[in-house]
Design a protein around this nucleic acid. Structure first.
Length: 268
DNA sequence: CAAAGAACCTGGCGGC
DNA sequence: TGCCGCCAGGTTCTTT
């Protein structure tokens, strides 16, 4: 999402959404396409922010347009108005005043676009944990988060109300980097391990952003390109392959219902 | 309250 | 080839 945000920000900031075309009502549910169209029409974008995995378009009226891509959403900036846009899985198109479009494709239809009124904004993030790339997210902050939590540390990393923005790929890679077993009860981590993990989370996310995200299947950047972080995965989706550190086989288990990859020799 | 599991969707893949 | 179950970058609701 940070890659998408970085590409969209310079392209759409200062532009006005002249029209929205909603081709799948589920994207704007529980609102109707007509409601959404009427509320977004004529709005200018003053900034593009991100909170966790949510993209936030700040609008001149004070409203926010908030988009979440979930598993298979793809948000693309199409600058050339003559460009061919695939209709397959196309859910929504936002037409801008410069002739460009933002298109929202989504195979599994989990993605959401919603408008948040100013009065709702203060409470909108109340279930969202801290941003791991902020300086304040340090060893001490992570220690407080894991304190008293008996569940597997990986489940905690994926819990957006504990820490914002960590997905399944990045949880696996960060735990490998910190040499921590994904099933360890969160509260069992030592102070040193918590410090290591907080740094591994930052390192993993920064590296993923520098590679423009992970294009395993449907994910694309806002310009339609592929991310390259998947080329550097050390354990995620590498079941049976040798661990890059010890050479032992990468193992796959289920943690909190999610496929989880780790090295049982390196991660304790 | 914490934690586990099902539900929400579509499509690709492997097994039979 | 066809059908079936399983799996997938996530969140939310229900149940325990």
């Amino acid at each position: 999402m940070e890659t998408v945000r970085r590409q969209l920000e310079p392209a759409v900031t200062g532009h006005t959404i002249v029209r929205a075309s909603v081709t799948d009502a589920l994207v704007v549910a529980p609102r109707t396409p007509a409601w959404f169209r009427n509320h977004i029409k004529g709005e200018s974008i003053s900034a593009v922010d991100r909170r966790g995995k949510y993209l936030v378009f700040r609008l001149d009226s004070g409203r926010w347009l908030v988009i979440h891509l979930r598993m298979t959403g793809v948000l693309t900036y199409v600058g050339n108005s003559n460009a061919e846009v695939s209709r397959r899985h196309l859910r929504m198109t936002l037409h801008l005043d410069n002739g460009a479009q933002m298109t929202f494709h989504d195979q599994r239809r989990f993605g959401k676009a919603l408008i948040v009124e100013p009065a709702e904004q203060a409470g909108f993030w109340r279930h969202m944990g801290p941003e791991p790339l902020q300086r304040s997210f340090n060893a001490r902050a992570l220690q407080q988060i894991i304190e008293g939590k008996k569940r597997p540390v990986k489940s905690l990393l994926l819990d957006q109300s504990a820490i914002a923005g960590i997905g399944n790929i990045y949880a696996d890679e960060a735990l490998f980097e910190a040499r921590i077993h994904p099933l360890r009860p969160a509260e069992s981590l030592s102070a040193q391990e918590a410090a290591d993990l907080s740094q591994s989370i930052k390192k993993t996310l920064r590296k993923a952003i520098s590679h423009e995200g992970s294009s395993i299947d449907t994910y694309r950047t806002a310009s339609g390109g592929r991310g390259r972080f998947q080329e550097t995965f050390r354990v995620h989706r590498r079941e049976g392959e040798p661990c890059p550190v010890c050479g032992g086989a990468v193992t796959k288990i289920k943690v909190g219902g999610r496929g989880t990859y780790f090295c049982p020799r390196c991660q304790r």
